[in-house]
Amino acid sequence: MSDTALVRYELDDNVAILTLNRPAKRNALNAPMVEELRQAIERAQSEARAAVICGTGEHFSAGLDLAEHVGRSPIEGVHHSRRWHAIFDQMEQSPIPFFAALHGAVVGGGLELAAAAHIRVADETAFFALPEGTRGIFVGGGGSVRVARLMGVARMTDMMLTGRSLSARKAEDWNLCQYVVAADEARATAIDLARKAAGNAEMSNYAIINALPRIQDMARGDGLFVESFVSAMTAAAPEAGERLRAFVEKRAAKVARPEA
């Protein structure tokens, strides 16, 4: 994809890097950008083992392009929302893990997009908001499911009703991101994490991404039953057998203590 693409695509070894590229509009998400995102997601899934999504300019994404939203009929709004759902589902239910590198505005639809990734890394410039209440609209990119799952309904309700914004540190406290790093370091950190995940067994990554969320939606007994099947299938994969033998034969490193 060219430098003029709305979503730039780069393959760095086995990690795909998808960059939102509409900086003059704070990477606001319009229909053409979301369609290019779909193409980039599909390409990453076909040739990479992990992926990073980030934004060019001063912001990750300020959300939905409101100019595009004005004047839509209710049925057009439903179709638009469902299209976002389908494309963000492609990321969330991907065979490879996606890491979001966040800086500047992570607002509205930008936060909904980030929530579709599996791990979120924010730098200290990042701020998070859901201003839909103040705009007279409602989330439409899956936020009522994904964002609410991350931080809880009460906190999401607060953000939507009051329009409050959160710092990166507060967002980490509320589980909207898993890492906070110094300014301008989110992309590099996310790529480093993606490389680590890319080195995992492919079947393990698939199970982590696709089984864990579904198990959380099940009754306790059903979840434990499904866990047994996923565990058995993963362990039976050839790659798992080699990795387990390497550990037993002391050819694989043990888990180390965390750094102080």
Rank of each mutant, 00 (worst) to 15 (best):
E36N: 06
R149E: 06
D173P: 01
H69Y: 15
H118M: 07
A117T: 11
R82K: 11
G77V: 03
A260L: 07
A115R: 00
A31V: 12
A194C: 09
C177A: 07
E35M: 09
L166M: 09
A197R: 12
H85E: 12
R38Q: 14
A260P: 07
I53D: 07
F247W: 04
L176Q: 02
G223D: 14
I119K: 08
N200D: 13
L193P: 06
D13N: 14
L111A: 03
A114V: 05
E132Q: 08
E132F: 11
A235P: 04
P238S: 04
A201I: 15
N30T: 06
R43Y: 01
P95I: 08
I191L: 13
R220S: 07
S204K: 14
R243L: 14
A198G: 09
V139P: 06
R72A: 07
S144K: 01
F225L: 15
L224R: 15
A194G: 13
L113T: 04
A105W: 02
G142K: 02
A240F: 13
A50L: 06
T125Q: 12
A236W: 07
W84A: 09
A188Q: 10
E92A: 14
F127G: 01
V139Q: 02
N14R: 10
A5K: 06
A154D: 13
G110V: 05
T157F: 05
D3M: 06
A48T: 04
V106A: 00
R120F: 07
A183M: 11
